[in-house]
């Protein structure tokens, strides 16, 4: 297979798609990003402050939330985490690395048919709980799983 030709074709496809997206107004930031980045929550270093900032203080434990992550992560820089919520009306999933320098990792708001599921890879500085907070029907629920880290992902 002629590799160069394939690259050219791929490039043409991507440029075309970008043109369509621009024409549809999809690249206008105001149309894409609904909320301002929650700086206060993401830059909090204390877990209690993070929980407060995401409205998760006093969330009830729920067996309907599954946090799938390895028991032992050899490399804390790349820890696969999958959160599944079987709670009806799941609106958002928040992932927290409890002992990280900045505990709040990510918050996903889900709508228009998006299921209570996200899968990603996170950093863990040290052995810690990976906590998921789920907002469903206006209420906060939580579940956590401990991941043992042999080499931290946030050090220097």
């Amino acid at each position: 297979m002629n590799n160069q030709r394939r690259q050219v074709l791929k490039g043409a496809g991507a440029a075309g798609a970008l043109g369509v997206a621009m024409a549809a107004g999809l690249l206008k930031p105001s149309a894409v990003f609904a909320a301002e980045w929650n700086k206060a929550a993401f830059e909090s270093k204390a877990l209690a402050d993070v929980l407060k900032a995401v409205g998760g203080a006093g969330a009830a434990d729920s067996a309907q939330i599954t946090v799938k992550a390895p028991d032992i992560a050899e490399n804390g820089a790349v820890v696969p985490v999958e959160v599944t919520s079987a709670l009806p009306g799941t609106e958002s999933i928040t992932i927290i690395g409890e002992k990280n320098g900045f505990p709040l990792v990510a918050q996903f708001d889900l709508m228009n048919g998006a299921q209570g599921f996200v899968s990603t890879r996170i950093k863990l500085g040290t052995t810690s709980n990976v906590r998921a907070m789920v907002k469903a029907g206006g209420k906060m629920y939580t579940a956590a799983k401990e991941v043992k880290v042999t080499i931290g992902g946030c050090g220097g």
Binding site: F42, I95, L104, F108, D109, A114, Q115, V118, S119, K123
Partner: peptide, 24 residues
């Protein structure tokens, strides 16, 4: 239609991977 609106910190790994599911 927007199906996912996420905010991230630096705790997501380098060269991020993301998967999600949409019904309908």
């Amino acid at each position: 239609k927007t199906v996912m609106d996420a905010q991230w910190g630096g705790g997501i790994s380098k060269n991020p991977y993301l998967a999600f599911n949409v019904k309908g």
